[in-house]
Structures are given as structure tokens and as C-alpha cells.
Design a protein around this nucleic acid. Structure first.
Lengths: 147, 147
DNA sequence: GTGCTAACTGAAAATCATTTTCAGTTGGAA
DNA sequence: TTCCAACTGAAAATGATTTTCAGTTAGCAC
């Protein structure tokens, strides 16, 4: 389950943000898709149903939603970000195919012990972590053998 | 210990790359510094000793060295990469202060078990992983309290 | 050493994602 | 209904990275 539109809207309101048709459309669009999408891809999708929304507005809304913790940002090499709805009370990680870019999510990581030790040794207050595995998916492995 | 200049040069030669004064200077520069550096920072440093080397050449050399596995690339939020010499037969991870950008390296992560399970469940051939902890260093925590 | 060629170089231009600016619009509290 | 801070889209600005191109050079074959 991901956060509901209602939940997100009420959080926006609580933080002094206004609910505009554009924001509603963007939120709907992100909730609907289960994949990681770049801002440009989100723009394209949202525009299919609500033409005229600017890419700038997408960027601004993504920033706000990330700030409030509803979506998560990912940097998978290159200079391009992508975003995905976050599920309540779960964090997740990625397994990425370096050939075709396919992304598989997983949620368990069991890094608590390591985190505690690092925190103790460095006096950092650790707020979170980013874990990504990189590899080659079955399909691309096959193709590599043939090619 | 990091890879030696000799080792890197012979690997370059073996892969059909030529050894140019520019490449030598860049390799020296990266070996000398123990921090993560952006391409621009590397350029600045290298130019102190060897003026006239273009930023483009830095980018090209970094790409080549990354390809051969001598340096490792890091994406720490924003749209900026940084690079660090890799130590032979070790991989390492980062603990990053989200306020001042300080980076602390650590090498142990104990993700073998998780990696095997993921590989089994997804049929991915996993080649590596990226692990970064994000937090606030002692200094920035102090300043946050005062400010 | 000399010649040769593929690899390399720097400068400038191009690209591309992202951010800023700005003037006009609008949600929603009073 | 009024009003203003928050919001919007377009265009311009930014900044990192990549491409293009014409000239240079490493290093192999002779």
C-alpha cells in the first residue's frame, strides 16, 4: 500500500501548501505508477490527462513531496534522478540492471547493527541510508551470451 | 594502499590506451589525494602542477580509469559526481554529512548473505553494490543546536 | 632514427537536467 | 467578497557533462 491522495493532500495543507489542480494531477500520476520515473517521464504521463502542466511545476511538486517524505529519490548513475511513491513505514532499496536499467525493489536490509557501530565510532547522527545492488538481469545475461 | 602509478599505466597500455603526460599528471593527482574529488576539483589540483590541461581531458581520463576499475565514482545527491582511488581488493562505502558534505569511508558491510538471497530470488548476476549512510556529523550537530 | 596511424588533446559548441526569474493567476483564510 | 501569500508557466539562466573538430603525439613497424 502507498499513501492515499487524501493523506498526502492533508499533509500538504498542514504544512501550508495549497492544493492546486496541478498538484492533484501530479500526485495521482505518481500514485498510479509503480515504477521509478524521471521528472520528464512523470511530466509526459501527467500531460496525457492534463495537458498544459509545465515541467517546472513537476520539479517543484516532486521537491515538495520528497521533503514531506511521500516519495523517494534515487540516483542511479548518469545524471538523472528518478522518483517513486514511498510506502508508509517502510524504506526500500534497489537492485538495478546495469545493462537495461530495470529496477527491482526490496525492503529488508538489516543494517541496524552496522549503523549503530558507525554512529558510535564517528559521532554522526545517522538519518538514513542508501543501498543499491548493481548487476545484470536474467534477460540481459542471456543476450550477452548470444551477442 | 592504493594502486601504484606503474600498475595503472601498465593496465592502460594493456588495454590499448596511450600514456600521455596529461594522463600521468591526472593519475598522480588522484593518487595523492585521499578525499573524494569532483572532476572540477581534480582539474584545479592537477592544473596547479601542470597548467593547461583541459577539463575535458579530466572527464575522459576519469571515465577510462573508472572503466578499468581503478577509481570509484560516487553520487551523493545533487547532480555532481566525485571520484576516489580504489584500494586493491577492497571495496568501501561512505558515511556522508548532509550539512557540510564531509565524507567518512568505511570498508566492512557484511552484505554477502543479502546479496546471495537477492541473486537467488531475482536471477540477477550481482556485480557490486553501493551503500551510503547519511547523517549529520558532530560539528554540524553542534552548530545546529546553537543556530 | 623515420614514418605512420590510431589514439589523444584542448577549445568551443552542443546538450541536457535542473533552477531561477518574472509577471500574471488562484486557493483558501479572514 | 476581498486579499495576499503561494502558485503557475514561459523563458532565461545555470552548471555539469558530452560532442565536435582540427591539430598533435605515443609508440609500433620499418
Amino acid at each position: 500500500m502507498v499513501y492515499s491522495e487524501k493523506k498526502i493532500e492533508s499533509a500538504l495543507r498542514q504544512h501550508g501548501y495549497k492544493i492546486t489542480p496541478q498538484r492533484r494531477a501530479i500526485i495521482k500520476g505518481i500514485i498510479k505508477s509503480r515504477e521509478h520515473l524521471t521528472p520528464a517521464a512523470i511530466h509526459e504521463r501527467v500531460c496525457r490527462e492534463h495537458p498544459g502542466i509545465g515541467l517546472v511545476t513537476i520539479y517543484r511538486t516532486l521537491e515538495t513531496l520528497t521533503e514531506l517524505g511521500f516519495i523517494c529519490e534515487m540516483h542511479a548513475g548518469g545524471n538523472c534522478r528518478s522518483y517513486l511513491m514511498r510506502r508508509p513505514s517502510e524504506h526500500h532499496h534497489h537492485l538495478i540492471c546495469s545493462d537495461c536499467g530495470k529496477v527491482i525493489d526490496f525492503t529488508d536490509c538489516d543494517l541496524g547493527e552496522l549503523e549503530r557501530r558507525l554512529s558510535r565510532e564517528t559521532s554522526f547522527k545517522i538519518n538514513g541510508h542508501l543501498l543499491e545492488f548493481l548487476g545484470q538481469c536474467r534477460q540481459c545475461r542471456k543476450e550477452a551470451v548470444i551477442g
